[in-house]
Each structure stands twice: as C-alpha cells, then as structure tokens.
Design a protein around this nucleic acid. Structure first.
Length: 593
RNA sequence: GCGCUUGUAGCUCAGUUGGAUAGAGCGUUGGAUUCCGGUUCCAAAGGUCGGGGGUUCGAAUCCUCCCAAGCGCGCCA
C-alpha cells in the first residue's frame, strides 16, 4: 500500500495545510511522521484502512493521557465492524511486534473510548532539547512559507492626524503577523496604503489655513463650532467640520515660521495641505518607529489613476456585465454576489468611490507576484471588503490569496471606567500618549494578548503595574531571571557554554518544560496560518509558567557539577525560547530589570 | 429590518480547527515556604460553555432557530 502514504500527504495538504509537521528543519523525522508510518504498517497488517483515510495526532490537554494521542481506532470502528477499544488493542499488538523504537517511545496505552496514547522516551526529550540548543536563535523558524512572497498591508491611515489608540492595534497586529510570516519562511513586505487626494485631505488643508490665518493675524474674528456641550472656539475661516486637534495649530505655527506670513490664503489650499501631510507623515513614522515598525513601502492611491488602472477595471466589468450606468453614476452589480443592493463605483461627479481604487490596489498587489496578501482592517470595514474580493475575483484573480484580518475596537480602562474618546471632538488618546504612559513593550503586548476579533479592554492601571499581575512583566521577568542565573553560574566557575549530559534531566518539572519548549515551531505555524498573534503570547505564558515551576523545584547552582551543567543548558534553552517568542511579538527581552 | 462579529468561572480572557474530567490570570478562602532576582508553591471554592433543536462513536467547537451585545448598512473612507 505504497500509494496510501502519498494520498494521505496530498489530502492533508489540501484539507489542513497548517497541520503539516512543521519541524522539517530538524534532522530526524518528527515523532508524528514516525508514528504515522508505524500505525499505517499496523493497519495494513490488519487488512488496511479505507481510501482517503488519514491519521490525526494531537497533544492531549491532560498530561495523564501521554504526549501524543491518536484517534484512529474510533474513526475506523465502522470500517472494521469492531469496537474502538478492540481495534486499538489490535493496533498496539502490531506496534509492539514491529517493534517501536524504544529510544523514542516509552509506552503505549489504550485509554477512554479507544485513544492510543503514546509516551515519549527520556532519550527523545534530551534529543529534542539538544536540537533546541543547537538551533538557538533560529529555533521556532519553519519552512511552511518557503519560496513564497507575502505582503502585509496595515495602518493605512490617511495623513489627517496623529495615530490613535485604535490605529495602534492595527499597527501592532499587522507588524506581528508580518513577523510570524517571516518566521514561517515567507519573504514578507510591509506596506502602508494611503490617499492624499480626497475630501478629508481638503478639509485638513482648510483647517490648517484657518489656524494659519489666525497665527499671522491675531485680531482675526473667531466663532464657535461643535456639538452642544462641546463647543470649540476657532478662527472665522475655519471649516465647520474641520480638524480640532492641537497638532493643526502646531503645523500652522511652523508654517508661519518657515514660510512667513504672506502665504496666499485665498487661492488653492494645496500649500497648507502639503505642509500638513508632510508633518503628519513624519509624526506617524516617528510613532511607528517607536513601536519598532518599519514600512517597506508607502502606496499612494493616486498612482492607480495615473496608471489608468481604475478605468481599465470599469471597462472589464462592463464587458462582464458587472458594471452599468444609472443616475449618471457607474454601479457595481454586487447583487450578483448576494448583496442586497448594487454599489456605486464612480460617482456622478466622475470621482470614484474608495471601492474602485481598492479593487485596483489589490489587483496591483497580486500583479506584483505576492502569494499571500494580508489586510488588517478595523471592524467598520467588515461589510465592505467582500466587495473588493468579489471585484478582484471577477477580474480573474485568485481571491483566496487575500486574507483579511478584522479587529474590534479598543476601550481604554482607567480606574475601572472606560475612557471616553471621540475623533471629532479631538478627545482621542494618541498612540504616543499611550506609550508615554505605559511604555512601548507593554503597549505592543496588550494589543497582542487577545484575539483580534473580540473587543479589547486595555486596562491602563494594570498596564502600568510592574508586578506579575502584568503578563508582560511576568514574561520579561522570567527572561531576566534566567540571565541572572547564567551570570551567577559563570561567576561561580560553572561552564555555561560547554556541552552537558542532558539525560540527567529526569525531574517531571524539567521534562514538562522541555515538552512545552518543543512546541514553539508548531505554535508559530498555527499562529501564522490563522494570523493570530495572541497564540504566541499565550504560548509564552505557558513557557514562563513551566520555567517557574522548574525553577521552584530544581536548584542549579549548588548541585553536583554534571547536573548543574545540564540544568544550565535547560535554563539557557528556556531563555532562548522566551527571547525568540518575544522577538516575534516585537517586545524586548531584557537581561536585567 | 438586513449583513458581519461576539456571548465560556465574580472580572478579563484561552480553548491545539470535532476528542477524554472545559482551562489560565486576577479576585475570594485555607495551607506551606523566605531560597539562583523583587517571593514562590500547593489546595479549595466558583460552570445548564447565552437558550432550544439537529448532525455522530464524541459538540464550547459544525448546521438550524430564538435571545442579547458590538460594528456596519452613503454617489464618505
């Protein structure tokens, strides 16, 4: 049954690509592959499994159930017309007569309704630990995305003001997803998409001009705008729906210093718009840099018009009868894709809505040869991005290459109460202010600790607390503590770097620590495949917990030399795991705190 | 009204893509410990997984119908 194995691989590839064993970079075949082969041999001896059947393995949540578990007997109950437990016993019988490699598997049990539970041999654990140590800072990297190019588009805030807390979640999510893709082998680019030509930007220019006029002429009359209960005094020429943030005034003041007081305030607002854009972008880039984020490219929506791309798309839609004229506008037949209404692509003014350039932009990305395009959007885009996907699909592109990550909004909590924020009233909290208050690492971590599609409650009081109630502190502290142990050990004359007899690590706390550490590559693959960075922060907490338990149970300095050296290696490996994980999250791994 | 998302312990949230007795942190209660780095460890209590029905060996997870919350439903982006 040689073809069986091949078919299984193909099936797994199609149905669950993220479950492909990720540790192919390791020299020996993974435990899963090994057991897979063995069980298939056993099943062949029992008469063979049905077509299309493939084995599934999982790590039991309960350690009493062993290290790896297989549910084949239950799935094959109907096929063999026997009870799952009997099938399981048969498989075990055949496995024992193979026999299994005792240096890898120490025990097999049949448990519960018919699970096959495998327990790893100690030698396997020390072998794994050695591999972690050898791989060092590249442990956790996988080859899942090797040879593929990915583009992560995120932030993409139009340059109308400083980044806010909401943008922060977007920025940190996008950057970390990009990191995850890099760790899993992709060649990744980070891109920022913006539009500096629309109405928003015109209002921005007018807002700056209004402030500028007041700066150069202090006697300019003023007026009040805003909602009842939240009036703001602004210069007379200030637009009714203008931007009220203080930064507008700063830009106006700088403009008056650099360009003098004679700028033409009656003509085009372009001068003011340009000045604002330049300064705001500088501000945004500064904020991103502080978060450790570097964009590879900034994509201006305007280039899609310059290249005529958007009009070509309209023509292509017309040919397919997906676009038509009505009321002087061009409509997209979104009802064809299950929407309630058609949507406008080009307004009666001749100006496209954002949807059209968005389709063009995604087509452009795919033209650039990316195998995967990740978009990070706020929840307010939730209903609109399907139109874009339908659009590019209609143009003949593979929309499955586009993966949209939606995140829900962020609420800041201070003293147990939500902090009220409104962009319009300029009462929002900027990302810089948030980082000033709680620190850069904490900011990144808090944005990453929860699944992106649930509301995030950002507890400022907890974030500022430097105790183990604060999960970031707990992780960084574990790392710093290991560094301290390593320093101290080398002071007392222990050989920190040399090799050690790792088979001395027999304590349960040592073994469970090794088992958790072995999971890093798999955790990376899962987090990358699902675009869920919070899996890594949860994983790291498990590592830190396992380390703390080891630390509480096993002494290092003061033990017999050989054991001390082995434990030092283990501690050093745990430090490396924490460091690699924190690196993916973009958070510092301090050696001292 | 329609669409998407969410609903799990007192609170904030995980839950390995359908697995075994549903987990963690905080909070509460009780106990041990004071050591390589600020303490840490152990235990207890706490749950109709929003509710009903269905699918199967097996459901927090998939399907369906209700209930509730958030977001969106513009020739704004």
């Amino acid at each position: 049954m040689l073809g069986f194995r091949v078919r299984r691989q193909a099936l797994r590839h199609r149905r669950a690509p993220h479950r492909i064993p990720s540790n192919r970079h390791l020299p020996t075949p993974s435990m899963e592959d090994y057991l897979n082969d063995c069980i298939l041999k056993a099943l062949d001896a029992m008469g063979g499994a049905p077509d299309g059947f493939f084995l599934e393995f999982e790590q039991p949540a309960n350690p009493d159930h062993g290290d790896l578990s297989c549910n084949a007997a239950m799935q094959l109950a109907r096929h063999f017309r026997k009870s799952p437990r009997m099938i399981a016993e048969d498989i075990v019988g055949h496995l024992e007569s193979l026999p299994l490699d005792a240096s890898r598997i120490s025990a097999i049990e049949v448990a519960g309704p018919g699970f096959l539970n495998f327990r790893f041999a100690d030698a396997h654990l020390s072998d794994q630990l050695q591999q972690i140590i050898d791989a060092g800072e590249s442990f956790g990297k996988t080859t899942t995305g090797s040879g593929k190019k990915a583009l992560v588009e995120f932030v993409s805030a139009n340059p109308t003001g400083p980044l806010t807390v909401g943008h922060g979640r977007n920025a940190v999510l996008g950057d970390t997803i990009a990191n995850l893709l890099e760790w899993t082998g992709y060649d990744v680019d980070r891109e920022y998409y913006f539009n500096d030509a629309g109405r928003q930007m015109r209002v921005l220019g007018e807002s700056v001009r209004g402030r500028y006029m007041a700066v150069v002429n202090p006697d300019l009359p003023t007026k009040e705008i805003g909602d009842e209960g939240h009036k703001t005094v602004v210069p007379e020429p200030f637009p009714e729906d203008g931007y009220l943030g203080d930064y507008i005034e700063d830009i106006a003041r700088e403009l008056s210093q650099s360009a003098g007081s004679d700028l033409d305030v009656d003509g085009d607002v372009d001068v003011f718009k340009k000045a604002a854009e330049k300064q705001i972008f500088a501000d945004i880039e500064g904020t991103l840099k502080r978060l450790g984020i570097h964009m590879d490219s900034f994509f201006n929506e305007r280039t899609l018009y310059d290249s005529n791309r958007v009009w070509e798309i309209i023509e292509s839609f017309r040919e397919k009868d997906l676009a038509y004229d009505k009321d002087n506008a061009v409509w997209f037949r979104t009802t064809q894709f299950g929407k309630e209404q058609d949507t406008v692509l080009v307004k009666s003014t001749g100006e496209p809505t954002y949807r059209l350039p968005d389709i063009g932009y995604h087509a452009d990305k795919l033209d650039r040869g990316y195998d995967l395009c990740v978009d990070v959007f706020g929840a307010d885009h939730i209903a609109t991005f399907p139109d874009v996907l339908d659009g590019i699909r209609s143009l003949g592109y593979d929309a499955d290459k586009v993966d949209v990550v939606i995140y829900q909004f962020v609420t800041l909590i201070r003293g147990g109460e939500p902090v009220k924020m409104s962009t319009r009233k300029a009462t929002y909290v900027t990302l810089d202010e948030l980082m000033d208050e709680v620190g850069d690492d904490v900011t990144r971590y808090f944005f990453l600790m929860r699944s992106s599609n649930t509301h995030l409650e950002f507890d400022l009081d907890l974030a500022k607390e430097a105790s183990d109630k604060n999960p970031v502190f707990y992780l960084q502290y574990a790392h710093a503590r290991i560094c301290s142990i390593l320093r101290k050990a080398s002071e007392t004359g222990l050989d920190v770097s040399g090799s050690a007899n790792l088979s001395l690590l027999e304590h349960p706390a040592e073994q469970s620590l090794i088992k958790v550490m072995m999971d890093l590559p798999d955790a990376m693959d899962r987090a990358a495949a699902s675009k869920e960075p919070h899996r890594i922060s949860n994983y790291l907490r498990d590592v830190a917990v396992a380390f703390t338990q080891f630390y509480g149970n096993c002494r290092i300095i003061g033990e017999a030399d050989e054991l001390a050296k082995a434990r030092l290696q283990l501690a050093g490996a745990a430090r490396q795991i924490l460091k690699n994980g924190l690196c993916v999250l973009g958070i510092g791994a301090p050696e001292r705190m």
